[in-house]
Design a protein around this nucleic acid. Structure first.
Lengths: 337, 337
DNA sequence: CTGAAAGCGCTAACAA
DNA sequence: TTGTTAGCGCTTTCAG
C-alpha cells in the first residue's frame, strides 16, 4: 500500500521548459521578477509535469514551514474543542498547518513537547499553559508565542475578560440574595484558576458578601462529588465551579444528596460548553466566544511569524464574556433553621 | 518578541569535538556504528552547545518528518473530539507530530487540503472521508492512508461494527414492541450513513418490522426540528437518528410539540457523546470506544509509515459497539386511535 | 530579465 | 571506526 512517490523537481521543470532552475524558482516564489511570458510557460510545464514544490527543501532554507503548533493543557476538556476549532479554521484560512499537542495537564510534558517541536514549527499557541513564567519567556525567545487564557507581561495573549465576567457572576448571585459563595478552584498552576478566584474575591468584597475557596480540584465531572460535599460543608448557598464539567459533577452529586438546585443552593460554571444547556437543571455559566479566542490567537501569531506591518508589539487581547443565565441559579435559600 | 534563533549545527559540534560531521551524525542516528567513547564525547559537546538536529534538513533527505495528518470531515461535531484525542495520544506516544485539518463537510476542501499536505506529512488518517472511492485510492498511492469510519477494499481502515450494532438497536426496539422505525439519514456522501441504513434495514427485515429512511439531514442539533417533524409525519413510533446531535435536536422538537419520549415515541442516537447522558430524557445511543478508534488508526498508519515487521497488508479493523440504554427508549405506544 | 553556482543542515556512500 | 565527499530540492546572491 503506497510508496512515497519521488515526484518531479525544479530541475525537471527547468529542463522541460528550457530555462534555469532559478527561473523556475522565481516563477513560483517571486512572480514579479520574471518575464510574464516565460513565467507562464514555466507554470504550464510545471502543472503538466505535476510539479509540487518540496516543502522540506523550502523549509531548510527559510527555516519556516507554514506550520504552527497549538499546545493545550488538557485535551479531554471539551471546552478546548472550541478553541481548537477556531484556531484550525484561522490557520487553514492562511494556508498554515496546525499541529495539535496535548500536555496532559503536566508542565513537564508540555515543556518537552514544545522543545521537541520548537525547531519544526514557526510558532506556538499555548492554551492555558501550566508552565512557570520563566519557561514561557524562554520559549518566546526561541519562537513567537501567543498565550491563550493566560497573561504574562511582554508576551502576546488572548483571554476572556474574567475580571468583568466574575463581577457579573457575583452581582448576579448577590442580587439573588446570596451571602456566601464558595469557589471550587481549578488546578494549582492554572492562571485562570488564580485569576477567577482573585476576581471573584474582590467582587465579593466590593458587594459585602463572603467568598471562600476550596480545592484545588481537577476540573472533571468525576471530581464534582468531592467538590459538592466540600462546598456544602463550607455552608455555601451559591457554588461557583472552576468550569462546567466540575459544575455538572456538582449538580449530579447534589441531586444524589437530594439537595435542590437552585432552591437550596445555586451553581454557576465557566465556559458554557454544549452540555451546559442540556443538564438538569440547565447550568448558569460564564461563557464567551471561544472559537474567536482560537481564531484571534492564531491571527496574532501569524502576524508575529510573518509580519505584514512591521509593528513589533505584543498585543494582549481581552475578549468579552457573557453570563448565560439558566436554571441552576435562583434566590438564596432562607438561612437554615 | 522572539527572533528565529540560528542554533548550532553538526559542523559546530564536529569542530568542538574534534571529529567529522559524519561522526556527529552517526552519534545521533546510528549510535551503534560509532565508538562508545567518541559517541559520548560528541553527545556531551552537543548538549553543551545546545545542539538540536534540524528536522527540515533531515526531512529533505529522508522525505519523512515524523508527522501525520488527521483530516476530519466536520470538526464541529463533538464526536470527532474523541477520535482526535485518541489519535493525538497515540501519535505523541511514538513521538509523531499530529496535524489536524477540518474538511468542513466539503469533498473539495478535503481533497485540496490533502494535496496541500501530501508532500509534507508521512501519512494520513482520514476520518469519515467524504471523498469518492477513486480519490481515496489515488491518495493512497501517494502516501499511506488509514480510513476511519469508512471502509474501502484495499485500504486500511478502522470502524465500529455497525452491522452488529444496528442489529442490536433494532432488536432493542423490536423487543419493546415497535413496528415502525424511521432512520433520519446523515449526509449524502457519508459512508457511515449508508452503512447504518443498510444495516438497520436488513435487521428490520429479519425481524419483520418496517424501516423507513428520511433525509438526508446535516447532523446538527439545529436540524432536529425538521427531522422530528418528518419522522412524526412518517408515522414512526421509533426514531433512529444519524447521530446524537441530531437526536438531541429531535428530543427538543418533540418536547416543543408535546410529544412524550419515550411514551409516544422512542429515540435512538449514535456515538454516545458526553451530552447524551445529560439531555432530558437521557439518550439511548449506540456507542463505542471512540478514542480507541483514533488510537488504532494512528497505530496502523505508523506501521505503514515506518514498517517494523515487513508485512505489506492493509488491515481492516472492526471494533465493537455498545448499545447504551437510557431514558429515550421505551415500549411502543398503542396504535393511534 | 535570466543563468550559474553556492550553500541551507544533514545523511550516506565510499575510502581510509 | 572514522573522515571525505556528494548531494536531497530549493533559494539567492552575483554576473551577464
Amino acid at each position: 500500500m503506497s510508496t512515497p512517490v519521488p515526484g518531479p523537481t525544479i530541475y525537471d521543470v527547468a529542463a522541460a521548459a528550457g530555462v534555469a532552475t532559478s527561473t523556475v524558482s522565481r516563477a513560483f516564489s517571486n512572480p514579479t521578477r520574471v518575464n510574464a511570458t516565460t513565467r507562464e510557460r514555466v507554470l504550464a510545464v510545471a502543472t503538466e509535469l505535476g510539479y509540487r514544490p518540496n516543502p522540506h527543501a523550502r523549509a531548510l532554507l527559510s527555516g519556516r514551514n507554514h506550520t504552527i503548533a497549538m499546545v493545550v493543557s488538557d485535551i479531554t476538556n471539551p471546552h478546548y474543542f472550541e478553541l481548537i476549532r477556531g484556531a484550525e479554521m484561522r490557520a487553514r484560512a492562511s494556508e498554515y498547518t496546525l499541529v495539535l499537542v496535548n500536555a496532559e495537564e503536566s508542565p513537564r510534558v508540555e515543556y518537552e513537547q514544545i522543545q521537541r517541536l520548537a525547531s519544526s514549527v514557526d510558532g506556538f499557541v499555548l492554551a492555558a499553559s501550566r508552565l512557570p513564567d520563566e519557561n514561557l519567556r524562554q520559549i518566546a525567545v526561541q519562537r513567537p508565542v501567543v498565550l491563550m487564557s493566560r497573561e504574562l507581561a511582554g508576551l502576546s495573549s488572548v483571554v476572556l475578560d474574567h475580571v468583568q465576567g466574575c463581577r457579573q457572576v457575583v452581582e448576579h448571585l448577590a442580587s439573588l440574595g446570596h451571602q456566601d459563595v464558595v469557589y471550587l478552584a481549578g488546578p494549582r498552576n492554572s492562571w485562570m484558576a488564580a485569576t477567577r478566584w482573585s476576581a471573584l474575591r474582590s467582587a465579593a468584597e466590593a458587594l459585602g458578601i463572603r467568598a471562600t475557596r476550596i480545592g484545588p480540584f481537577t476540573p472533571r465531572v468525576s471530581q464534582g462529588g468531592a467538590a459538592a460535599d466540600g462546598a456544602l460543608h463550607a455552608g455555601a448557598t451559591a457554588i461557583v465551579a472552576h468550569n462546567d464539567l466540575l459544575a455538572i459533577g456538582v449538580l449530579r452529586r447534589l441531586a444524589q444528596r437530594a439537595v435542590r438546585v437552585p432552591d437550596d443552593v445555586s451553581v454557576v460554571g465557566f465556559d458554557n460548553i454544549f452540555a451546559a444547556d442540556l443538564c438538569t437543571p440547565t447550568l448558569t455559566t460564564l461563557g464567551g466566544a471561544h472559537a474567536d479566542l482560537g481564531r484571534s490567537a492564531v491571527e496574532i501569531l501569524l502576524e508575529a511569524v510573518a509580519p505584514v506591518r512591521t509593528k513589533e508589539s505584543a498585543p494582549q487581547v481581552v475578549l468579552p464574556t457573557e453570563l448565560v443565565l439558566r436554571g441552576s441559579t435562583g434566590p438564596a435559600a432562607r438561612p437554615a433553621v
